[in-house]
Design a protein around this nucleic acid. Structure first.
Ligand SMILES: [Mn+2]
Ligand SMILES: [Mn+2]
Ligand SMILES: [Zn+2]
Ligand SMILES: [Zn+2]
Lengths: 141, 141
DNA sequence: TCCTAATTAAGAATTATTCCTATTTAGTAA
DNA sequence: TTACTAAATAGGAATAATTCTTAATTAGGA
């Protein structure tokens, strides 16, 4: 994703375009595996050695509020972020911190149809995400 | 769930039966909404005013290790625990901290069949959990 | 170019959780 | 029963992630 797009995304959200925000957006788009704030800091610091860590926290919070990024649910004490906004699911590795994206339109359709037919009493479904837990075969975990 | 069962669960896990562990188990079984450590502490303290908060953390960690309870994935900074071990899904309220259990064998079967047929490359599925996000209608949120 | 509300840097403060260690205790075996 | 000992707990210090505070800086508009 190019700088132009970041620029546009920020403006669309009524956010001032600052070097710090551009840097965090770039980190989010380049880092895989649903980065922690720490991961993002490490990436950003390369080009912006003077950025304050509080700014990164604040920036991420702002981005979540504006819907530019999403938080990823985990059972750990560190927050992780997802630069991909479109609906998708996650593969959680049982023995490492690896979390991969999983896209599957067929699955989404199946679930949509299922829950359209079978209502949940007293609950209005807005979104469904799968946590697919298991292990990655082969390559680096 | 009666005290007898707690007793048995602990012994089966090779854990000494202590008043503290009994109390935490009882709290877990009585508190709904996937309690935090704080919730559990508040409950336990009623009958065990002298329990140390560190003991509750340690006890919960031990229970998770032994598979007596599970952690619940959230995007918050407080851990939440689930006394229900059998496979089930969760309804997450968008506007509150409410998380309810959702059991659905038909859904589980559908998913099992789906993923049996459609393999995920390089990933061995062990477990699938749905996060069903939305809002509760009516009653107290 | 100037103005000002928004943003940032820096570091203190907070919160949840973990760690440490002296003391206590559950379970076991004499 | 009693004594023993590994395991568990209490109490409090330490840590780690995150949030808060405030003075200085800056982006974007007039
Ligand atoms: Mn979490
Ligand atoms: Mn924390
Ligand atoms: Zn993702
Ligand atoms: Zn549950």
């Amino acid at each position: 994703m190019k700088k132009e797009n970041h620029n546009i995304n920020l403006k669309n959200s009524n956010l001032k375009v600052t070097p710090q925000r551009m840097a965090v957006l770039e980190a989010l788009n380049n880092l895989k595996n649903h980065p922690t704030t720490e991961n993002i800091k490490e990436y950003v610091v390369k080009n912006h050695p003077n950025i304050a860590v509080g700014t990164i926290y604040k920036t991420l919070e702002t981005f979540v509020e504006k819907g530019l990024v999403k938080k990823v649910k985990t059972e750990k004490d560190v927050m992780r972020y997802d630069a991909i906004i479109e609906n998708h699911h996650h593969l959680y590795c049982e023995d490492s911190e690896r979390i991969e994206d999983f896209f599957d339109d067929e699955l989404n359709n199946m679930l949509e149809i299922y829950f359209k037919k079978k209502k949940i009493p007293n609950f209005k479904v807005k979104d469904i995400k799968l946590q697919i837990i298991g292990t990655f075969k082969g390559n680096k975990s």
